Simulated scan of single mutants.
Amino acid sequence: MGNQMDKLSHLSYAEVPTVDRDGVDTEEGPRIGVSYIFSGDDDELEDGCAVDGTVKDPKQEEKQYDRRDEVECSVYNREECIYDKSSKCATLEVYSPENLLNKCKAGDLVEFVATGQYPHWAVYVGDFQVVHLHRAEVKNSFLTDASQGRRCRIANDFYRFKALGADMVVQNAMEQVGLKDRELSWRNPECFAAWCRFGKREFKMGGEIRIGKQPYRLKILMSDKHSHVLEFQSLEDVVMEKRRNDYLGRRAVQQELAAHFNTVNREPGAD
């Protein structure tokens, strides 16, 4: 049998299950989904913080990471796959920061992962250093410091856009160092790092006009035969939801979707 694809009915923001509501530019068939507009960044649940927001020692031992609880997904812009994070199409192996240094080249994207945290993205600029958006400021840090005890991997191939030249990627990153707060054009470190590498305005805040159409689809892969699809008006919205799922983990996302479909399928008046 082919893949079975379930689709969520349209939800208002209040009905959408969430953890925390504050949390070089160029550029059919009806589907049902939802768009998110977030009012805040998710950095408070990122580097150096546990899920409850308590500050951790940056020199602590390696944080817990379980590959089996990682959410696999794909993103489509209309019919074109623009992002794929699945075991069939991407290298999901993770390394210690020290081991990753032997594999990184200037201009590479690095993703840091740990259980119960949003993934953190950075641009490797050479000399053991990365540029990343951290706590509403673009910073230049040593890769081992930016990792905050997390495992990491090269994330160049998740997005399927054509990359800029390595020199341009590094230049894009370095030119933003020191920007903070209202000077920023990116809502989270993934959007910042991806913009540096691909130069697409869609990764910036307000980079796309939301006009009612929902050209983006997030396909969450739950098993070999089952997936769930959400639709969004902008790539920025997709990234925010994708990152929320990464924070929750595979089991929690499965439970959330199961609870939603049980509610949708319940007959009116049923106990």
Rank of each mutant, 00 (worst) to 15 (best):
Cys196Arg: 05
Ser39Tyr: 10
Val94Lys: 07
Val34Thr: 13
Gly48Val: 01
Phe128Glu: 15
Met240Ser: 14
Val130Asn: 08
Asn102Phe: 08
Lys219His: 11
Val238Ser: 01
Leu100Met: 01
His228Met: 05
Tyr124Ile: 00
Met168Arg: 15
Glu70Lys: 14
Gln176Ile: 00
Met174Gly: 00
Ala90Tyr: 02
Gln233Val: 10
Val16Leu: 14
Arg210Cys: 02
Phe232Ile: 02
Cys104Arg: 06
Val94Leu: 05
Ala106Leu: 11
Val131Ser: 09
Gly249Val: 00
Asp167Thr: 00
Phe161Arg: 05
Tyr83Gln: 07
Gln176Trp: 01
Arg187Val: 04
Lys242His: 05
Lys225Tyr: 04
Ala252Tyr: 13
Arg201Trp: 02
Met5Pro: 01
Ala155Asp: 10
Ala163Gln: 09
Gly29Arg: 11
Lys139Ile: 00
His132Ile: 07
Ser223Ala: 08
Gln233Met: 15
Ala258Gly: 04
Asp224Phe: 04
Ala252Leu: 14
Ile32Pro: 06
Gln171Tyr: 15
Arg266Gln: 14
Lys59His: 09
Ile211Ala: 10
Asn245Cys: 12
Phe128Gly: 14
Leu184His: 08
Val113Gln: 11
Ile154Glu: 03
Asp181Ser: 12
Phe161Lys: 00
His120Tyr: 06
Ile220Glu: 02
Thr115Tyr: 15
Pro17Gly: 08
Tyr36Ala: 04
Pro97Ser: 04
Asp57Lys: 04
Gly178Ile: 03
Asp237Leu: 03
Gly249Asn: 02
Arg151Lys: 15
Val264Gln: 04
Gly149Ser: 07
Lys7Gly: 11
Thr18Ser: 09
Arg197Glu: 02
Asp52Ser: 11
Ile209Cys: 06
His226Thr: 02
Leu230Thr: 00
Asn140Leu: 13
Asn156Gln: 12
Glu80Asp: 11
Gly126Trp: 04
Asp25Ile: 02
Arg244Cys: 09
Pro215Glu: 13
Leu235Asn: 02
Val229Ser: 08
Phe112Gly: 03
Leu235Thr: 01
Arg21Gly: 01
Ala259Tyr: 00
Ser147Asn: 03
Asn156His: 08
Val94Ser: 08
Gly149His: 11
Val75Tyr: 14
Glu28Tyr: 11
Ala50Lys: 14
Gly206Lys: 10
Asn265Leu: 15
Asn3Pro: 00
Gly126Thr: 09
Leu11Gly: 08
Asn156Ser: 08
Tyr65Gly: 07
Leu184Ser: 07
Ser87Phe: 01
Leu8Thr: 02
Val123Met: 05
His134Arg: 11
Asp127Ile: 05
Tyr36Thr: 08
Arg68Tyr: 05
Asp43Ser: 13
Pro17Gln: 11
Gln64Ile: 07
Glu62Tyr: 07
Ile154Lys: 13
Val113Trp: 09
Val264Gly: 03
Asn77Phe: 05
His120Ser: 06
Val131His: 12
Arg67Trp: 03
His132Cys: 12
Val16His: 15
Cys152Thr: 13
Leu92Ile: 08
Gly53Leu: 14
Leu257Phe: 08
Arg31Gly: 07
Arg250Ile: 09
Leu257Met: 10
Gly269Asn: 07
Gly2Trp: 10
Met1Asp: 12
Ala252Ser: 14
Gln60Phe: 15
Ser35Phe: 08
Lys56Ile: 09
Ile211Phe: 12
Glu27Arg: 10
Gln214Gly: 08
Lys7Thr: 13
Gly269Thr: 06
Leu45Phe: 10
Thr26Tyr: 14
Leu235Tyr: 07
Ser223Gly: 05
Lys103Ser: 01
Arg150Met: 11
